[in-house]
Design a binder for these strands. Structure first.
Lengths: 100, 100
DNA sequence: TGGTAAGTTCGACACTGATCGAACAGGCAC
DNA sequence: GTGCCTGTTCGATCAGTGTCGAACTTACCA
């Protein structure tokens, strides 16, 4: 199950992954906190299983990767890889103002 | 029904509108052809009603607008408006390579 | 050796949304 | 006017997916 480092997916898969409100919030938190955060810090108000489902979508799209840090699962934003595949897409989305 | 010139929607709505394969193709064609094209030139392989449904989604997200030219309905890409709201998002997506 | 905590996986369920055909509404040509 | 063409709207259907609880795995600690 080393799907931790997959190639970045098709543009449509990446966009579909980012378009979900829950997942966009996860990416914003990862970006704000420097890119590597324990899973549980990335969501509020949803169950563990739902969060894990969203992690899987993001991982399979190549937007995040999973790593073990001191026995804890961390998620890491793969900003450079996504930028290399689709320059400007993810960075401009993360730079956009959250809806007011 | 002058929803032809709506404000650009929330980022999530814009992303959700763009993430669909049919709609992304529509936007690519609009971009390639200079921004204003008759409806029927923007899709293949789907029914008129389905296409109209997608137009409505794009229009409500503020990504395109509708205008009448010589009795024909044209759709126009609102690239400047979207860029003003979310700089770089739409332009980088349109600049990205179509999936190989 | 338990016990706890964190993530994942698995069904199951509900809701959203993409799709279609059919009916309707304007414009244009004849 | 009548017809034709284009696009929209309306119901209905169906697939996709977001959601949950429960069971399972793994890692750490006492």
């Amino acid at each position: 199950m080393d799907d931790d480092q997959l190639p970045v997916g098709e543009l449509q898969d990446v966009l579909a992954a980012i378009a979900d409100p829950v997942r966009l919030e996860m990416l914003r938190r990862l970006d704000r906190d420097g890119g590597s955060v324990a899973c549980s810090r990335l969501y509020d108000g949803i169950s563990k299983s739902t969060a894990s489902h969203h992690f899987k979508i993001l991982r399979e799209a190549g937007v995040i990767e999973r790593s073990m840090v001191a026995g804890q699962t961390h998620q890491t934003l793969r900003l450079e890889d996504v930028e290399a595949a689709y320059p400007g897409v993810l960075s401009s989305i993360l730079a956009a103002q959250p809806a007011r």
